[in-house]
């Protein structure tokens, strides 16, 4: 950045305000989780890990957490083959009606989440599947699928037609070519996409809220339900789980593809 001092001052003022807005909730939740008091107060009443031991023995929170992990894992496992194949098809082949197909595959982004959630609720409800966890996983997979496809197509620049032809020329039949040439080329995209799918599945709130019943609440829904009654530090401690997961995801994403990829122009 170049320019005068006043420009830096103005820009930094906005950026610092934005950073404060973005990170304040995270920092506060982290701080509140270590409080020694029974209420969340400022200044905090000393340091303790008692709320972490409290959540370890709280079966409802723990069960909800494992349900969330299950949903996130299942949704990622479904998304990997489906998104990878679709991404390869879009990136590598000339497909008829490609624009129409793209618009169609972007439907999960264009339809507001509440609309998708209500629609899937009606579909799974009519099929008598509500109250189980797999519909939640499938729903998470549907609404985030464009991320997976995007990640794969973005890494498809490594995909060289010549390499595949060379493999074929050396006598590799189609399946071998696909397994040894095509798949490894898009692997970084598959990993990025899976990471996004997992973390977004872990956090998914609205669609879970619509699809779960009292026996199958996921962690975000559980936190949401508990918040409405009273604010206690055990919720802060369990929220730290999400913060840690997000931290791991950001670190992995940066290591694997570099966050700078999101700054590139088309």
């Amino acid at each position: 950045m170049s320019g005068s001092r006043s420009k830096s001052v103005v820009i930094w003022a906005f950026v610092l305000a934005a950073i404060a807005m973005l990170s304040a909730p995270t920092i506060v939740v982290l701080g509140a989780s270590f409080t020694a008091g029974n209420m969340i107060e400022f200044p905090p009443q000393g340091f303790s890990l008692k709320w972490y031991s409290a959540i370890l023995s709280a079966t409802d929170l723990r069960d909800a957490f494992f349900r969330s992990v299950y949903v996130a894992a299942l949704n990622t496992i479904i998304a990997i083959p489906i998104g990878t194949l679709a991404g390869i098809a879009l990136a590598k082949y000339k497909v008829r009606l490609e624009n129409t197909i793209q618009v169609y595959l972007l439907l999960p982004f264009t339809i507001p989440l509440i609309g998708s959630g209500i629609g899937l609720m009606l579909v799974f409800g009519n099929a008598g599947a509500l109250g189980q966890l797999w519909p939640v996983a499938i729903a998470c997979c549907v609404i985030n699928l464009p991320f997976m496809i995007w990640a794969v197509t973005a890494s498809a620049s490594n995909l060289s037609n010549d390499l595949e032809l060379a493999a074929a020329n050396c006598g590799a039949p189609p399946v071998q070519t696909f397994l040894y040439i095509t798949l490894p080329a898009v692997l970084p995209g598959v990993i990025t996409g899976s990471l996004l799918m997992f973390i977004l599945g872990l956090n998914e709130f609205l669609v879970s809220l619509l699809l779960v019943d009292a026996r199958s609440v996921t962690l975000p829904v559980q936190i949401y339900n508990s918040i409405r009654s009273i604010i206690t530090p055990d919720l802060a401690a369990i929220s730290v789980v999400f913060i840690v997961c997000a931290g791991v995801a950001v670190t992995l994403l940066d290591r694997l593809v570099g966050l700078d990829i999101f700054l590139k122009s088309k």
Binding site: S23, P25, T26, V29, P220, I223, A246
Partner: peptide
């Protein structure tokens, strides 16, 4: 990215 990955519920809880 961190808040983006933390999810709405936890962030609203922070507020």
């Amino acid at each position: 990215f961190l808040p983006f990955f933390i999810g709405q519920v936890v962030r609203a809880y922070g507020w």
